[in-house]
Design a protein around this nucleic acid. Structure first.
Lengths: 250, 250
DNA sequence: CGCCGGTTTGAGTCCATTCAAGAGGAGTGG
DNA sequence: CCACTCCTCTTGAATGGACTCAAACCGGCG
């Protein structure tokens, strides 16, 4: 890593290094990407469904989520993103956004032109592979969410999401998996699990009653990680965090 | 295209050309990839969850599906694949399979070593981009399925899946969107929509009663495409088939 | 002919929803 | 400092869409 004060894009390097070891040259190339900083407030759009996506967006702080709507306005949240996530690579590469991405909390972001990213990906194949991996891991999470929503009951769905959130926070060095600030409202939690906010409320209470979690305002403590994990059938394999070196090419 | 008798990997070229125009050189490079052919029977595994994925798999004929299981054996199908789909790029690049892929019907496949694919992707960036796009479109479909399962009722979910299937068949030149052979059992349809097979049966009957579809054994006729589309809230934007050239880089 | 996987149908149940109303907290403005 | 609003959370009661359990049906095939 470059020794000096953290350059703005450092979280991106950190994220990519989860997927692939990068040389100093490669890291530097990422850090030198041109960008435009912006501060977003909750609900602000990073990209709106149907719009042209000409830039990618890196989350530097705060949280964001992906959402789609049905005709009659019912909402589905398909992903939560945190610091270091390259939030809009998917829309940017595809061109036309098939879903919206919005700030969940106050958030700092860096917009990076799409073609610069693509150019970098092919000038430094290992960086490109890391970015490709990153989008593939996102896809893996989508698959797990499909299973979660399709085949688990309310409590398990919520427990699963809480576990995933904790593990991802911890991986990024943003906190402890068993005690963290939880930024979602119950309504958002409902839209991420395919439930109604009313039922999420009741289910959370049940989980609390069973001693699996404790809640205070927007803050969550996992009382018994093992039990919560079992309740949510959570197995972090799908996050692909423990990549044995055998798999890493080059 | 190479003028002679269809080379085995031609479906892959056709699929990639959906996402990006490729030069003769690039096409030829794809066709010259080393491969191993195999014929699979329904239920045969292309890759099993938890296994090491060292090769990618191209579907040459027939259908395949991705699935995950819960602890107690409930199944979730997260994708259906057809001729030309590069079915296992996701697992192969990630190394450890986070889900299984199985043949839905009798199917011919070509296994291609992972490193050869990666090498090709970076030797011919436009081919690489096309492959990257392909995995991103898969991800887009996952997002739509999340919405489908989370926020639509049984009839709409099924109608949506039927529409998607038809459009994709038609795009690949495998049939007509409003009349095709439908390879899934009602149980598989249930696992793809987060329902039970009993309820799928009843919902199909309802759709038939409303005049939207007609069924005979494993064959499906869409009586009124516009109505079915409305019933399933189907908008094919998420399939990214109409890529305006503006978005295509290089 | 009889098995077997898939489809169909019925009856009863339940998990999650809907509708509705109240409580708590944060922010705003008089 | 209190009144007022807005948003989120909480709780109750009634409803309903989808599930479970169970049995019968059907067509293909050995």
């Amino acid at each position: 890593m470059l020794g000096d004060r953290r350059p703005p894009l450092a979280p991106m390097v950190r994220k990519l290094m989860l997927w692939k070891k990068l040389s100093t040259d490669e890291q530097e190339a990422v850090l030198l990407l041109p960008y435009r900083l912006a501060r977003l407030e909750p609900g602000d759009y990073i990209i709106k469904e149907g719009a042209l996506a000409e830039q990618s967006c890196l989350l530097l702080s705060g949280f964001a989520y992906r959402q789609k709507l049905t005709q009659d306005g019912a909402r589905s949240i398909s992903a939560i993103h945190m610091k270091g996530d390259i939030v809009d690579l998917q829309n940017a590469l595809l061109g036309c956004a098939d879903h919206s991405v919005q700030a969940l909390t106050t958030a700092d972001v860096a917009f990076i032109p799409r073609d610069v990213i693509v150019e970098l990906a092919f000038r430094f194949p290992r960086v490109g592979l890391a970015m490709w991996y990153d989008t593939l891991v996102d896809a893996s999470i989508f698959r797990e969410w499909i299973l979660n929503i399709a085949r688990r009951d309310a409590q398990a769905r919520i427990a699963h999401l809480i576990c995933e959130f904790g593990v991802r926070l911890e991986t990024l060095g943003l906190g402890d998996r068993s005690s963290y600030e939880f930024p979602m409202t119950q309504e958002q939690l409902a839209d991420a699990t395919g439930l109604t906010s009313v039922h999420v409320n009741r289910s959370l209470k049940e989980l609390e009653l069973r001693g699996l979690i404790t809640r205070t305002v927007r803050y969550l403590v996992v009382g018994d990680w093992a039990k919560l994990q079992r309740a949510g059938e959570f197995d972090d394999a799908y996050l692909h965090l423990r990549r044995s070196e055998t798999f890493m090419l080059n």
